[in-house]
């Protein structure tokens, strides 16, 4: 077959539409926002691009740094919890028979097909003071009281509007991002390696730690990055589940564009978020290349 890249007319016939789309709706707006980040407000709707670095300098104020580092820490904790929860799920999917496997996959994917807002409100319904979790605890509390335990009145737990609520929400939303790459890596694993380990006298736990986990490392790395990046940029989850002072970077950006009407600063923050993201991507690529080098020789 002729190489389609070499047939210029065919190449441009197919690539023209996506190229125009990409330029008009991705490159141009990004360039605009990038330009804004070096600008200053000149009136309520006008922005003068003055080439100032002031917006970036503003981002280094302690309260902004705090929001940035909170974002990184919360996203990181959520990512680690995702890893711990997703690994057994991925293992179960890998070793399930074909029918069970597709059901498990469906269960993992199902939340994806549900609106994020609905899922988040569902979570709020579970976790609020009159929610199902507190209700269940109250139920068992009252049973214990009626059995003669002197526990006093049930005080509902404050599960919402704090940092743990954000982490729970982030884990809930981003778990599939972790399960899928892990599953992809584990599913590729040659089963006879596990059998060989057992055959040589290793127990199941030893086999897990010495054979399965090391060989799944590329998948684990991919899962960490793919989960961490959207978790760090999450907007809806921290906005709805967090308290008034539990800001994450996306909410901060939104406030600049809306309430504060400071587009230049919002633009600068957007690009800072993107640079941080790119750094994590670069790290992943670096480790992947290193891993690839080890196995390529």
């Amino acid at each position: 077959m002729q190489n389609w890249f070499e047939n210029k007319r065919f190449f441009w016939a197919t690539m023209l539409a996506p190229t125009v789309w990409f330029l008009a709706f991705f490159v141009a707006p990004m360039a605009l926002v990038w330009a804004y980040s070096f600008g200053e407000n000149a009136g309520p709707v006008n922005i003068a691009i003055t080439g100032t670095f002031g917006n970036y300098a503003k981002a280094f104020r302690p309260e902004i740094i705090q929001v940035l580092s909170d974002s990184v820490v919360l996203a990181f904790i959520a990512t680690l919890i995702c890893l711990v929860l997703a690994f057994p799920v991925a293992i179960a999917m890998t070793f399930a028979d074909d029918k069970t496997k597709s059901w498990l996959l469906l269960l993992i994917m199902l939340p994806f097909w549900t609106n994020l807002l609905i899922r988040t409100y569902a979570l709020i319904a579970m976790m609020r003071t009159e929610g199902f979790i507190n209700f269940s605890f109250a139920f068992f509390h009252n049973i214990a009281v009626s059995l003669g335990f002197n526990l006093g009145d049930y005080v509902p737990m404050e599960l919402l509007y704090n940092k743990s609520a954000i982490v729970i929400g982030l884990v809930y939303v981003h778990l599939p991002f972790m399960v899928l790459p892990l599953y992809a890596a584990l599913d590729k694993l040659d089963r006879s390696l596990i059998e060989a380990s057992l055959d040589l006298g290793a127990g199941h736990m030893t086999t897990m730690w010495k054979i399965v986990v090391p060989l799944a490392l590329p998948g684990i790395a991919a899962g960490l990055v793919i989960t961490f990046i959207p978790a760090m940029g999450a907007y809806l989850t921290p906005d709805l589940l967090g308290g008034p002072n539990d800001l994450m970077i996306a909410t901060l950006i939104e406030r600049q564009f809306k309430r504060a009407n400071d587009w230049p600063f919002g633009s600068a923050l957007s690009f800072i978020l993107m640079y941080v993201t790119l750094i994590f991507f670069a790290l992943r690529t670096f480790f992947e290349a290193r891993g690839g080098k080890v196995s390529a020789h």
Partner: peptide, 27 residues
């Protein structure tokens, strides 16, 4: 299998790719 004094050479060999030859044999 891990308690049987029987060992197997697998069809795919199943050599652990992340371990050196020495570590494979020592495993």
């Amino acid at each position: 299998p891990n308690k049987r004094p029987v060992n197997t050479v697998f069809q795919s060999y199943a050599v652990f790719p992340h371990l050196s030859v020495f570590d494979n044999v020592a495993y």
